[in-house]
Design a protein around this nucleic acid. Structure first.
Lengths: 208, 208
DNA sequence: AATCACAGAGAACAGTTGTTAACTGGATGA
DNA sequence: TCATCCAGTTAACAACTGTTCTCTGTGATT
């Protein structure tokens, strides 16, 4: 597989990636709807017109960024939910995994948090779809757990989406605390852990 | 009180409000960081330079919008949490109140959801402050409830913020469903209600 | 070796932007 | 009544935007 693409296509993908990286950098202090095509090409060092060889518009570039930021995240989600640790430890692990991801890809996380409700409709739609997929995947994993005995499909999906949203909130809090003191980061960590635990307690008593 | 301001100041406040309204309208399909000063004045029908008589910049206008959108919401929050209904009815009431608010002020809700993680730092900060205030107020109300016996201050605030975030998520879902079918709106309503209920169940068993 | 495909360059387009400066005219207060 | 204030106007500025068309050089194909 992966037929070694010629020099031609390799270079194209290289500048395409450079455009994505440059855009992600510029988006740290603005939203996608104010991101200019010329601004991006200037940062990469190519002519403005070359942009069109890769994307129709900045909105198009935005949906590509959604793919890059969330597309590769699915395996991680599945394993996070399904690891059969001790119950308290599982939550701790999940929180640490989120914190690690924010540390590794802060610009990606910022982009998703910002554009989820942002001003560019196609991008909002793309994020919505990906998050819906996450919800379904988490539901599938939850269904395997003995705790889910007697739960309806609807309730499982309801809980899954609650978890997904909570993950995003937590990620966003870690992002804000990225340049804060270690004590502050610790506090965020503990609050997030307790919120997750409260939700899990609600889950365990749902059928009472 | 409210010393009847002269014709002069009355007119000024009128155009100021017109600027806020026009901006809110324009922000339905873009973010604040791409909102142009000229764009707003053109919509109002005044000269671009007149903008400076009211705001230093569009970011300044943004923080004023935060005040308008969230400032008047505090009494509603307090009464929502503190109404001593039956437990299941209380949640239903809260959801309906959120739905009603989204119906009445969709542009305000959209603005807050969009700019909470948006590209304009001072506006993010202003929203963060207001939401923190909401969190404290909800915590104060929760503290009065007998269910909160034995809870630490930290845990109460943790739960309060969980509720506030959940309110925002719910509001955002109602916003997306604004032009959808009544069946879809109903589904959103039911999911939101069950998520709130699950959190409340977690609350009741927190000290087990 | 000759041809084609195509990523990127360059120039030019009509519009747009934020900001400055100097101004007008009606409400305000003495 | 008269001087003052100040919300809003007009004109002009350099800088920027997305998009078009034409061109070039080089990797790919025959």
């Amino acid at each position: 597989m992966s037929h070694t693409l010629g020099l031609r296509q390799a270079q194209k993908q290289k500048t395409r990636q450079a455009l994505l990286d440059a855009a992600l950098g510029l988006l740290e202090e603005q939203s996608l709807s104010s991101l200019g095509l010329r601004e991006v090409t200037r940062a990469v060092g190519i002519a403005p017109t070359a942009f069109y060889r890769h994307f129709r518009s900045t909105a198009d570039l935005g949906t590509a960024l959604v793919e890059e930021a969330l597309g590769s995240l699915h395996p991680m989600i599945r394993t996070t939910v399904s690891t059969a640790d001790d119950h308290g430890q599982r939550i701790k692990r999940a929180i640490e995994l989120i914190a690690g991801h924010v540390d590794a890809y802060p610009a990606h996380v910022r982009f998703i948090a910002r554009e989820r409700h942002g001003g560019v409709q196609p991008v909002r739609e793309a994020i919505r779809e990906q998050l819906a997929r996450f919800g379904q995947e988490v539901r599938d994993e939850l269904a395997k757990d003995p705790v889910s005995g007697g739960w309806s499909e609807d309730d499982l999906l309801m809980l899954a989406n609650l978890y997904v949203d909570q993950m995003l909130i937590t990620a966003s809090l870690f992002l804000e605390a990225l340049e804060a003191t270690p004590e502050e980061r610790d506090r965020v960590c503990q609050v997030a852990e307790r919120q997750m635990r409260l939700i899990s307690i609600g889950r365990q008593h749902w059928l009472d």
